[in-house]
């Protein structure tokens, strides 16, 4: 197990470098540059800029420099946010995105697993149909539609909650973004839980548990839940990759100072150090979370050994 973890941790390094290289390649292949804005720049100034940022050097030197900075974990200065280093931006935006993402996923797990379990236990009942139709709705409504609709209802019509902004992370400001973000995960988790539970409920070992004389509640909690939740555990890995896309939208809809918002702005401004920094950072985070999910998988299912 320990060897597996170490191996996976080591593999993270080349994988992040691959992603970073890909991103860097895309940035460089695209015509245009961060300084070619609205107005034409005189040749002399352009030459100065190119020299200042080392753009006149051969590509492999620049690539090497970039890689060096990634490996050191110091991504340099942002080009669009003057006076701020990429690392500063990362550390100031991370709390926002992490709070959003974690709260949304916890909420999604709680609601999704409960709903899915109830739906599975009462298969083909009104409960089942209602919750599954609701889950399907959650999968089908894009979150940038859901978010504004929630704002329209709770902020602009009922005046219960603030429509946007971080507000220092106060609960009132968090409710709508977290709800918007978690909707699709709730839906997915509910569906996964339901199908996982149904499969286990039909299994022979649950029949054995019933034959033992355990009550239905005991059967569910001791014998069904653990196996039924496996699909949710394996979904949690890819879910984190999705979660990033989700936070980008939610941060934009609610004007939150998170990683995703900065990422999009950096892309539009061609802020190379910031893009590279965020891509590298998120890749590491996703890979580590994937590893955690795999460890959790082995912890839940004794048949899996690494």
């Amino acid at each position: 197990m320990l060897r597996f973890i170490i191996r996976r941790l080591i593999v993270i390094v080349p994988m992040v470098l691959i992603v970073v290289t890909l991103t860097w390649g895309l940035i460089r292949l695209a015509p245009g540059n961060f300084y070619t804005g609205e107005k034409r720049i005189p040749k002399a100034i352009e030459k100065n800029i190119r020299e200042k940022y080392g753009l006149n050097r051969p590509w492999y030197v620049q690539y090497g420099k970039m890689m060096g900075s990634v490996l050191r974990g110091d991504f340099g200065m942002s080009l669009t946010y003057p006076g701020q280093s990429v690392n500063q931006i990362l550390w100031s935006t991370l709390p926002v995105s992490a709070t959003l993402g974690l709260l949304a996923y916890i909420l999604a797990l709680a609601v999704g697993v409960t709903t899915g379990t109830i739906a599975a236990l009462k298969q083909n009942s009104k409960w089942d149909y209602a919750s599954m139709a609701f889950a399907m709705l959650g999968i089908s409504i894009p979150n940038f539609v859901l978010g504004p609709l929630l704002v329209l209802l709770f902020s602009l019509t009922l005046f219960w909650l603030p429509p946007a902004l971080w507000g220092g992370g106060s609960p009132a400001n968090l409710i709508l973004p977290v709800l918007t973000l978690s909707a699709i995960y709730m839906a997915f988790i509910a569906r996964l839980t339901r199908s996982g539970m149904l499969e286990v409920l039909r299994s022979d070992y649950v029949r054995t548990a019933r034959a033992k004389g355990l009550s239905e509640v005991q059967v569910v909690f001791r014998h069904v839940l653990r196996g039924g939740i496996m699909p949710v555990v394996s979904f949690s890995g890819p879910a984190l990759a999705f979660l990033i896309a989700g936070t980008v939208v939610v941060e934009r809809v609610f004007a939150l100072p998170g990683l995703g918002n900065y990422f999009i702005n950096a892309n539009f401004a061609r802020d190379e150090p910031l893009i590279i920094g965020i891509v590298a950072f998120i890749s590491i985070a996703v890979l580590i979370f994937n590893l955690l999910v795999d460890i959790g998988y082995a912890y839940i299912d004794p048949r899996i050994r690494y």
Binding site: V19, L26, I27, A241, I244, N267, V279, I282, S283, V286
Partner: peptide, 19 residues
Amino acid sequence: DVLYSLPYIMIVIVLLSFF
């Protein structure tokens, strides 16, 4: 497997915003 575990959506964003 490797591609699965990557936040590909970020690469797509980079790709589309630059081209």
